[in-house]
Design a protein around this nucleic acid. Sequence first.
DNA 1: GAGTTTCG
DNA 2: GCGG
Length: 198
Amino acid sequence: MSLMADPEIVDLYVLRRFVTAPAAFVQMVVTLYESAPPRRMQTPGGRLMSSEMTNCGALGWVSDHAGYRYVTQDPLTGSAWPEMPEAFRDLAGRAALAAGFGIFEPDACLINCYRGPAQMGAHRDADERDFSQPIVSVSLGAPAYFLWYGAQRRGSPAKLWLESGDVVVWGRSARKGYHAVQRPQGEVRYNLTLRKAG
DNA sequence: GAGTTTCG
DNA sequence: GCGG
């Protein structure tokens, strides 16, 4: 267990049960799905990711054969991504403050839906312009293990059990840390990843 | 470069 | 298509 020995782990915070009404957030996600349907994106290598994604906010993260990037319009509908609900921005701002990252004003919210065996392999959030801004990750629905690898994609990760309403915030030395998500321990798990992308 | 069924 |  290198959890305490890893210097960047101090820049990763777990705010347990930070969301007071997770069910209301799930309902907002379902409403957003009406204008920006969840879809499985393709990796640059041509494989389908197992989680279903969509976005809200001025910028939305997409992946396809051409690579990873943020775009202002949903490739599926041709329209702008739906506006980010105030409750999302407010929650992210309060979480970043609580974790000691100061004022945080996200312009992008990636919404992931993990159903059944869906998972997310080890990666890092590295498509944003300003790495001084933290990442705020909100867990909703079924619990799942979150794996934190840190600076190196190899080795044994720290394993965090995340439940509905838990919020993870990372930045500074941990900003570009590798992480992964295991399959949900239940039917469906949603995750909001709030970022200052532009 | 966010992929690969829980494998027995 | 490369590179990240």
